[in-house]
Design a protein around this nucleic acid. Structure first.
Length: 430
RNA sequence: GGUGGGGUUCCCGAGUGGUCAAAGGGAACAGACUGUAAAUCUGUCGGCGAAGCCUUCGGAGGUUCGAAUCCUCCCCCCACCA
Protein backbone atom coordinates (compact mmCIF):
# COMPACT_ATOMS: atom_id res chain seq x y z
CA UNK A 1 0.00 0.00 0.00
CA UNK A 2 1.19 3.47 -0.85
CA UNK A 3 2.53 5.58 1.94
CA UNK A 4 -0.19 7.98 2.95
CA UNK A 5 2.31 10.81 2.83
CA UNK A 6 2.66 10.27 -0.89
CA UNK A 7 -1.09 10.20 -1.33
CA UNK A 8 -1.54 13.40 0.62
CA UNK A 9 1.36 15.09 -1.05
CA UNK A 10 0.16 14.22 -4.51
CA UNK A 11 -3.28 15.60 -3.77
CA UNK A 12 -1.96 18.86 -2.36
CA UNK A 13 -2.57 18.37 1.33
CA UNK A 14 0.89 18.87 2.71
CA UNK A 15 2.55 22.14 3.57
CA UNK A 16 5.25 20.80 5.83
CA UNK A 17 6.04 17.93 8.14
CA UNK A 18 8.38 17.38 11.03
CA UNK A 19 11.02 14.65 10.81
CA UNK A 20 10.22 13.76 7.23
CA UNK A 21 12.08 10.47 7.03
CA UNK A 22 11.14 9.13 10.46
CA UNK A 23 7.55 10.02 9.80
CA UNK A 24 7.48 7.98 6.61
CA UNK A 25 9.10 5.04 8.30
CA UNK A 26 6.62 5.22 11.10
CA UNK A 27 3.72 5.14 8.65
CA UNK A 28 5.22 2.25 6.73
CA UNK A 29 5.37 0.09 9.80
CA UNK A 30 1.63 -0.33 10.16
CA UNK A 31 -1.44 1.39 11.43
CA UNK A 32 -0.68 4.69 13.08
CA UNK A 33 -3.01 6.89 15.07
CA UNK A 34 -3.24 10.53 14.12
CA UNK A 35 -5.39 13.42 15.21
CA UNK A 36 -6.72 16.79 14.22
CA UNK A 37 -8.43 19.24 16.50
CA UNK A 38 -11.72 20.85 15.55
CA UNK A 39 -12.88 24.01 17.21
CA UNK A 40 -16.48 23.77 18.29
CA UNK A 41 -17.07 27.46 17.65
CA UNK A 42 -20.26 26.72 15.75
CA UNK A 43 -22.77 23.91 15.62
CA UNK A 44 -21.61 23.04 12.14
CA UNK A 45 -18.34 22.75 10.32
CA UNK A 46 -17.97 24.57 7.06
CA UNK A 47 -16.04 24.14 3.87
CA UNK A 48 -12.98 25.63 5.52
CA UNK A 49 -12.66 22.43 7.58
CA UNK A 50 -12.84 20.16 4.61
CA UNK A 51 -9.10 19.86 4.12
CA UNK A 52 -8.53 18.48 7.63
CA UNK A 53 -11.56 16.22 7.30
CA UNK A 54 -10.46 14.83 3.95
CA UNK A 55 -6.97 14.24 5.20
CA UNK A 56 -8.29 12.19 8.10
CA UNK A 57 -10.40 10.24 5.63
CA UNK A 58 -7.33 9.54 3.51
CA UNK A 59 -5.52 8.36 6.62
CA UNK A 60 -8.32 5.97 7.37
CA UNK A 61 -8.43 4.69 3.79
CA UNK A 62 -4.74 3.90 4.05
CA UNK A 63 -5.32 1.83 7.14
CA UNK A 64 -4.50 4.31 9.85
CA UNK A 65 -6.66 5.38 12.75
CA UNK A 66 -7.87 8.97 12.81
CA UNK A 67 -8.97 10.81 15.91
CA UNK A 68 -11.15 13.87 15.61
CA UNK A 69 -10.53 15.89 18.72
CA UNK A 70 -13.26 18.32 19.59
CA UNK A 71 -11.77 21.33 21.32
CA UNK A 72 -14.36 21.54 24.06
CA UNK A 73 -11.69 22.58 26.53
CA UNK A 74 -9.46 24.67 24.33
CA UNK A 75 -12.58 26.31 22.92
CA UNK A 76 -12.95 27.93 26.31
CA UNK A 77 -9.55 29.52 25.88
CA UNK A 78 -9.47 30.63 22.26
CA UNK A 79 -6.64 30.12 19.84
CA UNK A 80 -4.92 33.37 18.93
CA UNK A 81 -2.94 31.80 16.08
CA UNK A 82 -3.03 34.03 13.08
CA UNK A 83 -6.00 35.90 14.37
CA UNK A 84 -5.98 39.64 14.58
CA UNK A 85 -8.41 39.84 17.41
CA UNK A 86 -9.41 37.85 20.42
CA UNK A 87 -12.09 35.35 19.87
CA UNK A 88 -15.28 35.37 21.76
CA UNK A 89 -15.21 32.81 24.50
CA UNK A 90 -17.94 30.22 24.53
CA UNK A 91 -19.83 28.72 27.40
CA UNK A 92 -19.60 25.06 28.28
CA UNK A 93 -23.19 24.39 27.20
CA UNK A 94 -22.76 26.05 23.83
CA UNK A 95 -19.59 24.09 23.23
CA UNK A 96 -21.29 20.84 24.10
CA UNK A 97 -24.10 21.52 21.69
CA UNK A 98 -21.71 22.42 18.92
CA UNK A 99 -19.70 19.25 19.49
CA UNK A 100 -22.85 17.23 18.83
CA UNK A 101 -23.38 18.78 15.43
CA UNK A 102 -19.77 18.35 14.43
CA UNK A 103 -19.82 14.71 15.39
CA UNK A 104 -22.75 14.08 13.11
CA UNK A 105 -21.06 15.72 10.16
CA UNK A 106 -17.74 14.00 10.57
CA UNK A 107 -19.45 10.64 10.45
CA UNK A 108 -20.28 11.30 6.80
CA UNK A 109 -16.59 11.30 6.03
CA UNK A 110 -15.15 8.91 8.56
CA UNK A 111 -16.16 5.46 9.66
CA UNK A 112 -16.40 5.43 13.43
CA UNK A 113 -17.48 1.83 13.65
CA UNK A 114 -15.43 -0.63 15.72
CA UNK A 115 -12.99 2.02 16.85
CA UNK A 116 -11.71 2.58 13.32
CA UNK A 117 -11.89 6.26 14.07
CA UNK A 118 -12.36 8.04 17.36
CA UNK A 119 -14.04 11.18 18.45
CA UNK A 120 -12.75 12.68 21.64
CA UNK A 121 -13.28 15.91 23.49
CA UNK A 122 -10.39 17.58 25.23
CA UNK A 123 -12.76 19.06 27.79
CA UNK A 124 -12.64 15.58 29.32
CA UNK A 125 -9.12 16.09 30.55
CA UNK A 126 -8.47 19.82 30.32
CA UNK A 127 -11.25 20.85 32.67
CA UNK A 128 -9.88 18.46 35.29
CA UNK A 129 -6.46 20.03 35.37
CA UNK A 130 -5.11 21.46 38.58
CA UNK A 131 -3.28 24.68 38.06
CA UNK A 132 -0.20 24.20 40.22
CA UNK A 133 0.54 20.58 39.28
CA UNK A 134 0.03 21.49 35.65
CA UNK A 135 2.50 24.35 35.87
CA UNK A 136 5.04 22.15 37.56
CA UNK A 137 4.68 19.13 35.29
CA UNK A 138 3.97 20.72 31.96
CA UNK A 139 4.64 24.43 32.21
CA UNK A 140 8.26 23.89 33.12
CA UNK A 141 8.93 22.47 29.67
CA UNK A 142 7.96 25.68 27.91
CA UNK A 143 10.32 28.53 27.37
CA UNK A 144 8.70 31.94 27.20
CA UNK A 145 11.67 33.13 25.21
CA UNK A 146 10.79 30.62 22.54
CA UNK A 147 7.08 31.01 22.73
CA UNK A 148 7.04 34.71 22.07
CA UNK A 149 9.03 34.11 18.94
CA UNK A 150 6.39 31.75 17.59
CA UNK A 151 4.76 32.89 14.40
CA UNK A 152 1.36 32.13 15.83
CA UNK A 153 1.74 34.84 18.45
CA UNK A 154 3.57 37.30 16.27
CA UNK A 155 0.60 39.03 14.71
CA UNK A 156 -0.96 39.61 18.07
CA UNK A 157 2.22 40.61 19.77
CA UNK A 158 2.74 43.25 17.12
CA UNK A 159 -0.85 44.36 17.00
CA UNK A 160 -2.60 47.11 18.86
CA UNK A 161 -4.93 44.68 20.54
CA UNK A 162 -2.18 42.59 22.04
CA UNK A 163 -2.30 39.12 23.44
CA UNK A 164 -3.99 38.14 26.65
CA UNK A 165 -2.62 35.66 29.14
CA UNK A 166 -5.42 33.20 28.57
CA UNK A 167 -4.66 33.06 24.87
CA UNK A 168 -0.98 32.76 25.55
CA UNK A 169 -1.75 29.50 27.28
CA UNK A 170 -3.41 28.04 24.25
CA UNK A 171 -0.24 26.60 22.82
CA UNK A 172 0.56 24.87 26.09
CA UNK A 173 -2.87 23.31 26.27
CA UNK A 174 -2.76 22.08 22.70
CA UNK A 175 0.65 20.58 23.30
CA UNK A 176 -0.76 18.90 26.38
CA UNK A 177 -3.61 17.45 24.31
CA UNK A 178 -1.12 15.79 22.05
CA UNK A 179 0.75 14.37 25.03
CA UNK A 180 -2.49 13.08 26.49
CA UNK A 181 -3.44 11.39 23.21
CA UNK A 182 0.04 9.99 22.85
CA UNK A 183 -0.06 8.46 26.29
CA UNK A 184 -3.62 7.13 26.25
CA UNK A 185 -4.33 6.44 22.59
CA UNK A 186 -0.89 5.84 21.17
CA UNK A 187 -1.42 8.83 18.91
CA UNK A 188 1.78 9.79 17.15
CA UNK A 189 0.78 12.33 14.56
CA UNK A 190 -0.96 15.63 14.80
CA UNK A 191 -2.14 17.39 11.70
CA UNK A 192 -3.56 20.85 11.24
CA UNK A 193 -3.61 24.04 9.25
CA UNK A 194 -0.36 25.82 8.62
CA UNK A 195 -1.32 28.34 11.29
CA UNK A 196 -1.11 25.45 13.74
CA UNK A 197 2.54 24.73 13.08
CA UNK A 198 3.74 26.36 16.26
CA UNK A 199 1.17 24.59 18.39
CA UNK A 200 1.84 21.25 16.76
CA UNK A 201 5.59 21.50 17.11
CA UNK A 202 5.14 22.44 20.74
CA UNK A 203 3.25 19.17 21.24
CA UNK A 204 5.83 17.12 19.38
CA UNK A 205 8.57 18.55 21.55
CA UNK A 206 6.63 18.10 24.75
CA UNK A 207 6.14 14.41 23.98
CA UNK A 208 9.81 14.03 23.19
CA UNK A 209 10.73 15.74 26.40
CA UNK A 210 8.30 14.10 28.77
CA UNK A 211 8.11 10.65 27.22
CA UNK A 212 11.10 10.51 24.94
CA UNK A 213 8.46 9.43 22.44
CA UNK A 214 8.37 9.66 18.68
CA UNK A 215 5.71 12.11 17.60
CA UNK A 216 5.22 13.97 14.36
CA UNK A 217 3.41 16.90 12.89
CA UNK A 218 1.92 17.57 9.49
CA UNK A 219 0.45 20.86 8.36
CA UNK A 220 -1.81 21.70 5.45
CA UNK A 221 -1.44 24.73 3.26
CA UNK A 222 -4.07 27.40 3.61
CA UNK A 223 -6.34 26.71 0.67
CA UNK A 224 -7.50 29.83 -1.08
CA UNK A 225 -9.33 30.23 -4.35
CA UNK A 226 -7.48 31.65 -7.29
CA UNK A 227 -9.54 34.76 -6.74
CA UNK A 228 -7.69 35.11 -3.46
CA UNK A 229 -10.65 34.23 -1.26
CA UNK A 230 -10.65 31.85 1.64
CA UNK A 231 -12.44 28.61 0.93
CA UNK A 232 -16.10 28.60 1.68
CA UNK A 233 -16.56 32.28 2.25
CA UNK A 234 -19.33 33.94 0.36
CA UNK A 235 -21.04 37.26 0.78
CA UNK A 236 -23.79 35.51 2.66
CA UNK A 237 -21.31 33.92 5.04
CA UNK A 238 -19.77 30.53 5.36
CA UNK A 239 -20.84 27.53 3.33
CA UNK A 240 -21.80 25.01 5.98
CA UNK A 241 -21.75 21.25 5.92
CA UNK A 242 -25.04 21.15 7.78
CA UNK A 243 -27.89 20.75 5.28
CA UNK A 244 -30.10 22.87 7.51
CA UNK A 245 -27.69 25.80 7.29
CA UNK A 246 -26.59 25.44 3.68
CA UNK A 247 -28.91 23.36 1.53
CA UNK A 248 -27.38 20.64 -0.66
CA UNK A 249 -28.55 22.71 -3.64
CA UNK A 250 -26.57 25.74 -2.48
CA UNK A 251 -23.64 23.53 -1.54
CA UNK A 252 -23.59 22.09 -5.05
CA UNK A 253 -23.86 25.60 -6.47
CA UNK A 254 -20.90 26.76 -4.43
CA UNK A 255 -18.73 24.11 -5.99
CA UNK A 256 -19.96 24.54 -9.50
CA UNK A 257 -19.01 28.20 -9.33
CA UNK A 258 -15.40 27.21 -8.80
CA UNK A 259 -12.87 29.28 -10.66
CA UNK A 260 -11.51 27.57 -13.79
CA UNK A 261 -8.02 27.62 -12.41
CA UNK A 262 -9.06 25.74 -9.28
CA UNK A 263 -10.92 22.78 -10.74
CA UNK A 264 -8.11 20.24 -10.85
CA UNK A 265 -6.69 21.33 -7.52
CA UNK A 266 -10.08 21.08 -5.85
CA UNK A 267 -10.89 17.72 -7.38
CA UNK A 268 -7.69 16.41 -5.84
CA UNK A 269 -8.44 17.92 -2.44
CA UNK A 270 -12.16 17.54 -2.12
CA UNK A 271 -13.01 14.29 -3.90
CA UNK A 272 -11.60 10.78 -3.84
CA UNK A 273 -11.44 10.49 -7.62
CA UNK A 274 -8.20 8.90 -8.82
CA UNK A 275 -5.36 11.28 -9.54
CA UNK A 276 -4.62 9.94 -13.00
CA UNK A 277 -8.13 10.93 -14.04
CA UNK A 278 -7.85 14.31 -12.38
CA UNK A 279 -4.63 15.06 -14.20
CA UNK A 280 -6.48 14.63 -17.48
CA UNK A 281 -8.84 17.48 -16.85
CA UNK A 282 -6.03 19.98 -16.94
CA UNK A 283 -6.26 19.58 -20.71
CA UNK A 284 -9.89 20.61 -20.76
CA UNK A 285 -11.15 24.03 -21.64
CA UNK A 286 -14.41 25.82 -22.34
CA UNK A 287 -17.61 23.87 -21.92
CA UNK A 288 -15.80 20.65 -21.09
CA UNK A 289 -14.07 22.27 -18.18
CA UNK A 290 -17.48 23.32 -17.06
CA UNK A 291 -18.68 19.74 -16.98
CA UNK A 292 -15.67 18.87 -14.85
CA UNK A 293 -17.03 21.43 -12.40
CA UNK A 294 -20.33 19.58 -12.38
CA UNK A 295 -18.45 16.47 -11.37
CA UNK A 296 -16.57 18.34 -8.68
CA UNK A 297 -19.86 19.73 -7.38
CA UNK A 298 -21.56 16.37 -7.54
CA UNK A 299 -18.77 14.49 -5.79
CA UNK A 300 -18.33 17.09 -3.10
CA UNK A 301 -22.06 17.18 -2.45
CA UNK A 302 -22.19 13.41 -2.35
CA UNK A 303 -19.51 13.29 0.32
CA UNK A 304 -21.19 15.84 2.53
CA UNK A 305 -24.85 15.01 1.94
CA UNK A 306 -25.05 11.58 0.41
CA UNK A 307 -25.75 10.28 -3.06
CA UNK A 308 -29.46 11.01 -3.12
CA UNK A 309 -29.05 14.68 -2.25
CA UNK A 310 -26.23 15.03 -4.76
CA UNK A 311 -28.30 13.56 -7.56
CA UNK A 312 -31.17 15.88 -6.70
CA UNK A 313 -28.92 18.93 -6.62
CA UNK A 314 -27.46 17.92 -9.95
CA UNK A 315 -30.88 17.43 -11.50
CA UNK A 316 -32.14 20.71 -10.12
CA UNK A 317 -29.15 22.45 -11.66
CA UNK A 318 -29.90 20.76 -14.97
CA UNK A 319 -33.48 21.89 -14.74
CA UNK A 320 -32.54 25.50 -13.97
CA UNK A 321 -29.54 25.96 -16.17
CA UNK A 322 -30.20 23.48 -18.88
CA UNK A 323 -29.17 19.83 -18.94
CA UNK A 324 -25.77 19.08 -20.33
CA UNK A 325 -24.39 15.67 -21.15
CA UNK A 326 -21.25 14.84 -19.27
CA UNK A 327 -18.96 12.91 -21.63
CA UNK A 328 -18.08 9.46 -20.36
CA UNK A 329 -14.36 10.03 -20.74
CA UNK A 330 -14.22 12.93 -18.29
CA UNK A 331 -13.43 11.64 -14.81
CA UNK A 332 -14.98 8.22 -15.49
CA UNK A 333 -14.67 7.14 -11.87
CA UNK A 334 -17.36 9.57 -10.82
CA UNK A 335 -20.81 8.15 -10.29
CA UNK A 336 -22.46 11.29 -11.58
CA UNK A 337 -25.46 10.30 -13.72
CA UNK A 338 -24.35 10.95 -17.26
CA UNK A 339 -27.22 9.75 -19.39
CA UNK A 340 -30.60 11.35 -19.84
CA UNK A 341 -32.39 11.79 -16.60
CA UNK A 342 -35.52 13.67 -15.86
CA UNK A 343 -34.75 17.22 -14.97
CA UNK A 344 -36.14 17.59 -11.52
CA UNK A 345 -36.12 20.85 -9.65
CA UNK A 346 -37.05 19.36 -6.28
CA UNK A 347 -34.16 20.89 -4.39
CA UNK A 348 -34.56 24.47 -5.64
CA UNK A 349 -35.52 26.86 -2.85
CA UNK A 350 -39.28 26.92 -2.70
CA UNK A 351 -42.01 28.77 -0.90
CA UNK A 352 -45.73 28.69 -1.20
CA UNK A 353 -48.45 31.22 -1.74
CA UNK A 354 -52.14 30.72 -1.16
CA UNK A 355 -54.56 30.84 -4.05
CA UNK A 356 -56.46 33.92 -2.94
CA UNK A 357 -53.36 36.03 -2.60
CA UNK A 358 -52.22 34.99 -6.01
CA UNK A 359 -55.60 35.50 -7.67
CA UNK A 360 -55.73 38.99 -6.23
CA UNK A 361 -52.38 39.71 -7.80
CA UNK A 362 -49.17 40.79 -6.11
CA UNK A 363 -46.71 43.38 -7.44
CA UNK A 364 -43.61 41.72 -8.81
CA UNK A 365 -41.17 43.71 -6.68
CA UNK A 366 -43.01 42.72 -3.52
CA UNK A 367 -42.90 39.09 -4.47
CA UNK A 368 -39.18 39.17 -5.18
CA UNK A 369 -38.60 40.82 -1.83
CA UNK A 370 -40.86 38.38 -0.03
CA UNK A 371 -39.13 35.25 -1.25
CA UNK A 372 -35.70 36.65 -0.46
CA UNK A 373 -34.40 37.27 -3.94
CA UNK A 374 -34.05 40.93 -2.95
CA UNK A 375 -33.19 42.36 0.45
CA UNK A 376 -35.70 45.17 0.39
CA UNK A 377 -38.49 46.51 -1.71
CA UNK A 378 -36.13 49.12 -3.09
CA UNK A 379 -33.56 46.48 -4.02
CA UNK A 380 -36.29 44.52 -5.78
CA UNK A 381 -37.35 47.59 -7.74
CA UNK A 382 -33.79 48.21 -8.79
CA UNK A 383 -33.37 44.62 -9.76
CA UNK A 384 -36.39 44.81 -12.02
CA UNK A 385 -35.50 48.22 -13.39
CA UNK A 386 -32.10 46.91 -14.33
CA UNK A 387 -33.63 43.99 -16.14
CA UNK A 388 -32.40 41.34 -13.75
CA UNK A 389 -35.70 39.80 -12.71
CA UNK A 390 -37.42 36.97 -14.52
CA UNK A 391 -40.67 35.10 -14.11
CA UNK A 392 -40.70 31.68 -15.78
CA UNK A 393 -37.76 32.74 -17.86
CA UNK A 394 -39.28 35.98 -19.13
CA UNK A 395 -37.83 39.30 -18.07
CA UNK A 396 -40.10 41.36 -15.85
CA UNK A 397 -40.64 44.69 -17.58
CA UNK A 398 -41.97 46.86 -14.78
CA UNK A 399 -41.61 46.67 -11.06
CA UNK A 400 -45.34 46.88 -10.39
CA UNK A 401 -46.26 44.14 -12.80
CA UNK A 402 -49.06 42.20 -11.13
CA UNK A 403 -48.13 38.59 -10.67
CA UNK A 404 -51.25 36.45 -10.61
CA UNK A 405 -52.53 32.95 -11.30
CA UNK A 406 -52.15 33.59 -15.02
CA UNK A 407 -48.41 33.30 -14.45
CA UNK A 408 -48.64 29.71 -13.27
CA UNK A 409 -46.90 27.38 -15.67
CA UNK A 410 -48.18 23.95 -16.62
CA UNK A 411 -46.82 22.43 -13.44
CA UNK A 412 -48.77 24.98 -11.39
CA UNK A 413 -45.66 26.73 -10.14
CA UNK A 414 -44.00 30.05 -10.78
CA UNK A 415 -40.26 30.16 -11.20
CA UNK A 416 -38.65 33.42 -10.16
CA UNK A 417 -35.10 34.22 -11.08
CA UNK A 418 -32.76 37.00 -10.02
CA UNK A 419 -29.83 37.61 -12.28
CA UNK A 420 -28.33 34.55 -13.85
CA UNK A 421 -28.07 32.18 -10.99
CA UNK A 422 -30.54 32.70 -8.21
CA UNK A 423 -33.82 30.84 -8.48
CA UNK A 424 -36.87 30.58 -6.32
CA UNK A 425 -39.90 28.46 -6.91
CA UNK A 426 -43.41 29.39 -5.84
CA UNK A 427 -45.94 26.69 -5.21
CA UNK A 428 -49.63 27.16 -4.68
CA UNK A 429 -51.18 26.42 -1.35
CA UNK A 430 -54.81 25.48 -1.82
C1' G B 1 -5.14 55.71 38.12
C1' G B 2 -2.75 59.79 34.77
C1' U B 3 -1.95 61.77 29.76
C1' G B 4 -2.90 61.68 24.72
C1' G B 5 -5.57 59.57 20.32
C1' G B 6 -9.97 57.30 18.65
C1' G B 7 -15.38 55.10 17.87
C1' U B 8 -18.79 57.30 10.59
C1' U B 9 -23.36 53.69 6.50
C1' C B 10 -21.40 45.54 4.98
C1' C B 11 -15.62 46.48 5.53
C1' C B 12 -11.60 50.15 5.10
C1' G B 13 -11.79 55.28 5.25
C1' A B 14 -12.83 60.94 4.22
C1' G B 15 -15.84 64.55 6.36
C1' U B 16 -15.18 69.27 11.96
C1' G B 17 -22.30 73.81 11.83
C1' G B 18 -26.06 74.09 6.38
C1' U B 19 -24.25 72.54 -0.57
C1' C B 20 -24.52 65.16 3.93
C1' A B 21 -28.09 59.55 2.91
C1' A B 22 -22.63 61.52 3.97
C1' A B 23 -16.13 61.65 -0.78
C1' G B 24 -12.96 57.57 -2.23
C1' G B 25 -11.76 52.38 -2.30
C1' G B 26 -13.22 47.29 -1.47
C1' A B 27 -17.16 43.84 -1.20
C1' A B 28 -21.95 42.92 -3.10
C1' C B 29 -25.95 43.14 -6.86
C1' A B 30 -27.67 43.86 -12.03
C1' G B 31 -26.66 44.59 -17.47
C1' A B 32 -23.37 43.63 -21.81
C1' C B 33 -19.74 39.75 -23.18
C1' U B 34 -19.65 34.26 -21.85
C1' G B 35 -19.28 28.44 -20.20
C1' U B 36 -23.69 28.93 -13.69
C1' A B 37 -15.62 30.60 -14.71
C1' A B 38 -12.16 34.74 -15.02
C1' A B 39 -11.17 39.52 -17.00
C1' U B 40 -13.34 43.96 -18.90
C1' C B 41 -16.89 47.89 -19.57
C1' U B 42 -21.68 50.13 -17.73
C1' G B 43 -25.21 50.90 -13.93
C1' U B 44 -26.86 50.26 -8.80
C1' C B 45 -25.53 50.03 -3.86
C1' G B 46 -30.05 52.96 4.12
C1' G B 47 -35.74 52.36 4.30
C1' C B 48 -40.51 53.65 2.18
C1' G B 49 -45.36 52.30 -3.84
C1' A B 50 -42.02 58.42 -7.71
C1' A B 51 -41.92 63.71 -6.07
C1' G B 52 -41.31 63.77 -1.02
C1' C B 53 -41.00 61.63 3.60
C1' C B 54 -38.56 58.55 7.42
C1' U B 55 -34.13 56.37 9.96
C1' U B 56 -28.53 56.57 10.29
C1' C B 57 -22.45 58.85 11.84
C1' G B 58 -20.65 54.74 20.05
C1' G B 59 -25.06 56.12 23.96
C1' A B 60 -28.12 59.85 26.50
C1' G B 61 -29.12 64.86 26.93
C1' G B 62 -28.24 70.12 25.35
C1' U B 63 -26.98 74.68 22.20
C1' U B 64 -28.87 76.25 17.28
C1' C B 65 -33.61 78.21 12.41
C1' G B 66 -30.20 73.96 11.26
C1' A B 67 -25.53 69.00 14.25
C1' A B 68 -21.76 63.34 11.88
C1' U B 69 -19.66 68.17 12.90
C1' C B 70 -20.27 72.62 18.96
C1' C B 71 -21.25 71.67 24.63
C1' U B 72 -22.25 68.15 28.97
C1' C B 73 -22.37 63.38 31.03
C1' C B 74 -21.71 58.22 30.08
C1' C B 75 -19.91 53.60 27.50
C1' C B 76 -16.09 51.19 24.62
C1' C B 77 -11.13 50.78 22.09
C1' C B 78 -5.89 52.09 21.59
C1' A B 79 -0.92 54.19 22.88
C1' C B 80 2.42 55.93 26.48
C1' C B 81 3.22 56.50 31.68
C1' A B 82 2.07 54.33 36.61
Amino acid sequence: MANVIDVLKERGFIEQTTHDRELRECLDQGSVTCYIGFDPTAASLHIGSLVPIMSLAHMQRQGHRPIALIGGGTGMVGDPSGKSEMRQLLTLEALGKNAEGIKKQLSHFLDFKDGKALMLNNADWLTELKYIPFLRDIGRHFSINRMIKAESYKIRLDSEEGLTFIEFNYMVLQAYDFLELFQNYDCQIQMGGSDQWGNIVAGVELIRRVQQGAAFGITFPLITTSGGEKMGKTAKGAVWLDAAKTSPYDYYQYWINTDDRDVARFLALFTFLPMDEIRQIKQLSGANLNTAKAILAFEATRLAHGNQAAVEAHQAAASMFGARQVPADILPASTLPRGNFGADDASVPTSSLDVQTLKAGIPAFKLFHQVGLANSGGAARRLIEQGGAYINGTRVESFDYQVSDTDLDDTQTILLRSGKKRFHKIEIKK
